[in-house]
Simulated scan of single mutants.
Amino acid sequence: MLLTITLGFLTAVGPAHADKGCKESTPITVPLPDPVSGRRYEIYVSLPAGYAEVPTRSYPLVILADGGRAFPRLSCAARAVSRDSARDEPIVVGLSYAAGEDLEDSRRRDYTPTKLRNSAKAYGGAAAYQTYLANVVLPYVEGHYRVSGGRRIFWGHSYGGLLGAHILLTAPSTFQTYILGSPSFWFDDGAIMDFETRYANRHRKLEANVILYVGGLEISRYDPQRKGKTRDMVQGLNAFETRLASRNYAGLRLTSKVIAGTDHRSSVGPGFAWGLNAAFQ
C-alpha cells in the first residue's frame, strides 16, 4: 500500500490567523471570488514593515499556495529571511481555499492538473484555478499594492508544488521564480512529465528561476503511523530536475536541495527559508 501524503504537512504550519510570534505581520483579508466558477476565495496580504512610510518604494511579491494554512508562519518567515539577507521585504499574499468547502477537497481540485479516472472526488482543476490566479488575483494585487515589475515569486508545497509546476510548464511568464517544495510529481502516474514533454516539443526557452526542495526522509519507507509505505518524493524531484536540465532550455535557472533529516511536514519551514533566500540571490 502506497500512502498519499497531502494534508499532513498542513498541520505543521497552522491556521490562517495572526502568528503571535510575528508582531510585524498585520494581515489584510480581501474577498476575491472567481467570476467563472462562482467559488468564493480570499487572499491574505502581509505588507512589509514601513510600507506606508515610503510611498514611492516597490517590493517583490511572494504568492503562497495553501495560504489558508501556511500564510501566518510563512509570511513571518519571509520577513526573517529578508532581514537576515539584507534584502527587500516582500509583499506576501496567501491564497485561500474555496469558502464552504473542506480544505482538502478544495486543494485536491484546484492544485492538480488532470482528472483521475474512476474517482468520485474532483481532481484536475489546476488550469481553471491558474486562470483565476492570472486574471483575478495578480491584477488585483498589483493594482492595489506596490509590486516591483518582474519580481513575482510562487511558493507551493506538495499539491501546491504540483500546481506551481503546472503553471511553469503552461504559462511560465506568470512568475519569474518558482519555489516548489516536495512536489507531488507522482500524481496520476507522473502526469506532470507529460506536460513537460509537450512544452519541450514546442519551446527551446524556459525563462524562469526554478528552486526545488524535498525532505531527506521523503523516500519509500514503511511508516508505522500510517501502516504502509510512503512515496519516494526524493526520486520524483530528482527525475523532474534531471528532465528539465536535459532540455538545455535557454533562460532556465535550476537549483535544488534535499533538506536532511526532514520529512514531508518538517521540510516546509527550512525548505521555504532556503528557497526564498535562493530566490533573493
Score class of each variant (00 low, 15 high):
Ile167Tyr: 00
Glu24Met: 03
Ala86His: 15
Leu3Lys: 13
Ala128Ile: 11
Tyr132Ser: 01
Val137Glu: 00
Ser256Arg: 15
Gly261Ile: 02
His166Arg: 08
Asp263Phe: 05
Phe175Ala: 04
Ser256Ile: 10
Gln225Asp: 15
Cys76Gly: 04
Val62Asn: 02
Ser184Asn: 04
Leu7Lys: 13
Pro55Met: 13
Ala245Tyr: 08
Gly14Asp: 09
Glu207Asn: 15
Gly160Arg: 02
Asp66Trp: 03
Gly94Thr: 04
Gly261Ser: 14
Thr26Asp: 10
Asp88Glu: 14
Val13Ser: 00
Ala122Asp: 15
Ser148Gln: 03
Gly125Ser: 12
His157Glu: 12
Arg73Ile: 07
Arg243Asp: 03
Ala165Lys: 01
Ala239Leu: 12
His144Arg: 15
His157Cys: 06
Ala77Lys: 01
Phe185Ala: 05
Gly100Gln: 09
Asp102Cys: 13
Pro27Asn: 04
Ser75Asp: 06
Val45Trp: 03
Gly228Met: 12
Arg108Asn: 10
Thr170Trp: 04
Ser119His: 06
Leu212Cys: 09
Ala273Pro: 08
Leu95Ile: 14
Arg117Thr: 13
Leu180Thr: 06
Ile28Cys: 10
Val54Pro: 03
Ile219Trp: 04
Gln130Asp: 11
Tyr123Phe: 14
Thr29Phe: 07
Pro35Ala: 11
Thr112Trp: 01
Arg247Ala: 00
Asp263His: 06
Leu244Ala: 06
Asp34Cys: 04
Pro27Cys: 04
Thr11Gly: 15
Ser106Asp: 05
Ala78Phe: 00
Arg204His: 12
Ile259Thr: 03
Lys227Cys: 08
Asn209Lys: 15
Lys257Tyr: 10
Leu206Cys: 12
Tyr199Gln: 08
Glu42His: 13
Tyr222Lys: 09
Tyr249Met: 08
Trp186Met: 00
Val81Pro: 01
Thr26Phe: 08
Asn118Ala: 15
Gly50Pro: 05
Ile219Pro: 06
Tyr140Glu: 08
Gly21Asp: 13
Thr230Glu: 09
Ile259Asp: 00
Asp102Ile: 07
Ile192Lys: 02
Ile211Tyr: 02
Lys257His: 15
Val13Tyr: 02
Pro55Gln: 14
Glu89Gly: 02
Arg231Glu: 07
Glu207Val: 12
Leu169Phe: 12
Gly190Trp: 11
Tyr178Arg: 03
Lys205Tyr: 02
Pro15Tyr: 04
Val137His: 13
Leu32Tyr: 08
Val30Ile: 14
Gly236Val: 07
Gly215Glu: 04
Ala86Asp: 14
Lys257Cys: 12
Val45Glu: 03
Ala18Thr: 11
Gly161Asp: 03
Pro139His: 10
Thr255Pro: 00
Tyr213His: 11
Asn201Ala: 13
Leu133Thr: 07
Ala208Asp: 10
Pro224Lys: 15
Gly215His: 05
Gly261Phe: 14
Ser220Cys: 12
Pro172Val: 03
Tyr178Phe: 14
Tyr129Ile: 07
Lys229Met: 14
Ala52Ile: 06
Asp66Pro: 03
Ser256Asn: 11
Ala278Val: 12
Pro72Asp: 01
Ala128Pro: 04
Leu252His: 08
Ala278His: 09
Thr114Val: 14
Leu116Thr: 10
Asn118Lys: 15
Asp223Gly: 11
Leu138Trp: 06
Ser58Cys: 09
Ala279Ile: 06
Gly67Thr: 05
Tyr140Gly: 05
Arg117Cys: 05
Arg253Ile: 07
Tyr140Gln: 06
